[in-house]
């Protein structure tokens, strides 16, 4: 009786061990098939761009393409900077100071994708509506952004995203 019992335990252990090893193997096989859908090496190699901000005149804005999305580079006027800095943090839905959002006050660099549902806000061209706060206005669902790209009115939950960037010379910035 005891023998049979022991035999069965050993048998169960074998089945469990085999199934467990098989499950580990299946997981290892699954990974390459999942990972192949991630960005490939050549895509990642293009993940950062360099841009010369001296090409943007004061008061003007330029849209550059970065990782398939528009990036707004705006050369802000002193008035726009002052406006952005004067806003009390308590008035903001997504509180951030302007200094946190712009390494150099005169150059604002944000991803031009509305944080509501992904439309591209208007406000780059001089003729565009800039919304009630002088920044950008998203025509899809009426989000208003200020001169620091912060959400002030409308359905969007967050400020326009600031991409990771650094100045590699006085005027040339590397985004990404």
């Amino acid at each position: 009786m005891a023998d049979t019992h022991q035999g069965e335990t050993r048998r169960d252990f074998l089945y469990v061990a085999t199934a467990a090893v098989g499950a580990v193997g299946a997981a290892c096989v699954a990974w390459p098939f999942i990972d192949q859908m991630n960005p490939a090496a050549d895509t990642l190699a293009l993940a950062s761009i360099e841009f010369d901000t001296s090409t943007v005149a004061e008061g003007m804005a330029v849209t550059v393409k970065w990782r398939g999305k528009p990036v707004f580079v705006r050369h802000r006027t002193q008035q726009e900077i002052d406006e952005a800095r004067a806003v009390p943090l308590a008035d903001l839905r997504d509180p951030q100071t302007d200094a946190e959002r712009a390494t150099k006050p005169e150059q604002l660099i944000v991803v031009g994708v509305c944080t509501h549902l992904g439309c591209v806000p208007l406000g780059q061209k001089p003729s565009d509506p800039k919304g009630e706060f002088g920044g950008w206005f998203c025509p899809c669902h009426g989000s208003h952004y200020d001169t620091s790209g912060r959400i002030r009115k409308g359905p969007a939950p967050r400020n326009l995203e600031v991409p990771e960037y650094q100045y590699i010379s006085d005027t040339v910035v590397r985004i990404g």
Binding site: P32, D35, Q36, A40, A41, T43
Partner: peptide, 13 residues
Amino acid sequence: ERIMRDVNYGWLI
């Protein structure tokens, strides 16, 4: 060749 060189695990697949 891109599959072989750049796609993650592309060579394996």
